[in-house]
Nucleic acid binder design. Sequence first.
DNA 1: AACCGAATCAACCGCGTTGTT
DNA 2: TAACAACGCGGTTGATTCGGT
Length: 342
Amino acid sequence: MRSSTNNKFSFQKKDLMNSSMEEEEEAAELRRGPWTLEEDTLLSHYIARHGEGRWNMLAKCAGLKRTGKSCRLRWLNYLKPDIKRGNLTPQEQLLILELHSKWGNRWSKIAQCLPGRTDNEIKNYWRTRVQKHARQLNIESDSKKFLDAVKSFWMPRLLQKIEQKTTSSSSSSSDVNLKNCSHQFVSNNSVLPFVSSSTTPHPPSTIIYNSNNLPKEISNFETNPSVFSSEFVEFYDQKPEINPEKQKLVLETPLHVSNGNSVNVYNNNCNSQIPDDSNSYMDCCSYDMEGGFNLGAPMTELVGSYDEMYSLLGRQVAEGDWFTSDLGDAFWNMDDIWQFRE
DNA sequence: AACCGAATCAACCGCGTTGTT
DNA sequence: TAACAACGCGGTTGATTCGGT
């Protein structure tokens, strides 16, 4: 429950059992509620000169009548220079969906993969947007059913949205351009159940692009991270076919990324970024939202075109594997998902 | 224009973890 | 090693904004 103050925006009187009278008086003067411009300026200037950390001390020294906690939160969620404002991009939404399916409510961990986004923002997004749709579908947002719905309907639509965006406009440096590759990326069986019968699971890999949209790193997360093998990474333009020998998808010509450069499969060593603990590979994984969306597994692997995917989805719905068509329709009709405000 | 319910998001809290003495 | 402080995370709240009537 909330503290004893009736008004959120009043001064705070903390329960300080062991504090001195002086401390009590100080605590009684602590401000709560929205930050003023003056407070923001004080905090920003102080951090610019002295750096972050030691928040309680910082609050005092900066002359702020706030708790250290409050200062930290204000800085991390609002004032920090690299904080991104504005709505989450489809790419970011896609990533959130994927990472949440993997980690659950580990907001901070998820936020680490979205540069400039805060855990609070992601948490709010999940609660206000994602859970809303779960409610509309009348299913629990943490249920397998909803997870499946997200994976099979929402994620593909986001991918499609990304594709539409990139084909309709030239990309900015921060955009993800999937013009030539989005149709090749569908999910592995952990994401889209319908592909599981046709592909043998193989170690997922990821390409990380630099700011010029050139591949700067390829990681094969779930195998020995110090050894990258191109065995499992082939990106091509044509309709994919499964090579029965290698049990992987083989296409004909190299994939092109947004700037027209081919994606090279480097036999590089990326061990400097990959810790021994491959179970927590995302801790070291850089989802490079600046340089380009990392179309890495485990979410995305090569399968077929969107047409094929939707065809498969349609069949799946028709066959009633685990999804009723009503539920599918409900997802298709969630137009607000696609209202990406600029 | 006024009202009202829903949605959004900044800010708070409790509590577990980590660091320091 | 115990005690305390600081930090950080996830859950929750409630003021504000938005959109419909």
